[in-house]
Amino acid sequence: MAGNNPNAKPMNLTLKVWRQRNRNSEGKIVEYQVKDISPEMSFLEMLDVLNEDLLLKGDEPVAFDHDCREGICGSCDLFINGRAHGPEKGTTTCQLHMRKFSDGDTITIEPWRANAFPVNRDLSVDRSAFDRIIQAGGYISVNTGGVPDGNEIPIPKNIADKAFEAATCISCGACVAACKNASAMLFVSAKISQLALLPQGQVERKTRVENMVAQMDKEGFGACTNIGQCAAECPVGISLENIALMNREFISAKATSENLA
């Protein structure tokens, strides 16, 4: 019953944290010690401890992105010990717990690295490129009101389930962070798949993939070389099948759409 163990031994850790004042300044790794870390803490709670210490000492706390702390908002984005979201598979940083580390460990913490994700400060990065890709076509163009009854469009359960699985993407950006090429194709393909699979998405199927891929390229992400680091590090298990589906959608759209531009 580790989760409820009052005797879990507290740990002392060395943290090597990337510090960078703002987007334009140089950054560097700074070393800190944290003491009496409970194995029951989440990783972010451990950083809270560090920040309270720093503030009380009159230093500036480490800026990092987080919010819901239950693995769904996609805000947290730390590169821990050489891995996006740290060593545990299928886990966001906020759901990573200190029981995965041992007393005396040194932990390196860096921000996501990609030109398309500039650093705001310390460990916080700007992922608005993802929003711009969605704005390029990650939607079904229906206005509020005037839509058919929800049950008028039957969707086979397996298709609905597949679309759902693609839709579980939380836009954290771990795929980009983990990819050798800083490619965003897992993220982009998840949205394209979701909408391409559903009957509602058929109307704009071709323009969607053309526009979203064009925006993805424009943002400066790298291209996929099918290594699979993205899917391996994805905290919600988005599958590489989506990238294949996106490629297929792209090829067929380019071959058959009437878009000459």
Binding site: G145, V147, P156, K157, L195
Partner: peptide, 22 residues
């Protein structure tokens, strides 16, 4: 009731039965 219709039209992948209905 309108909310469900709206969300389905937007492509929200609600859970479905084997017959394809919500």
């Amino acid at each position: 009731v309108n909310i469900i219709d709206q969300c389905v039209a937007q492509g929200v992948p609600f859970a479905r039965e084997y017959g394809g209905l919500l």
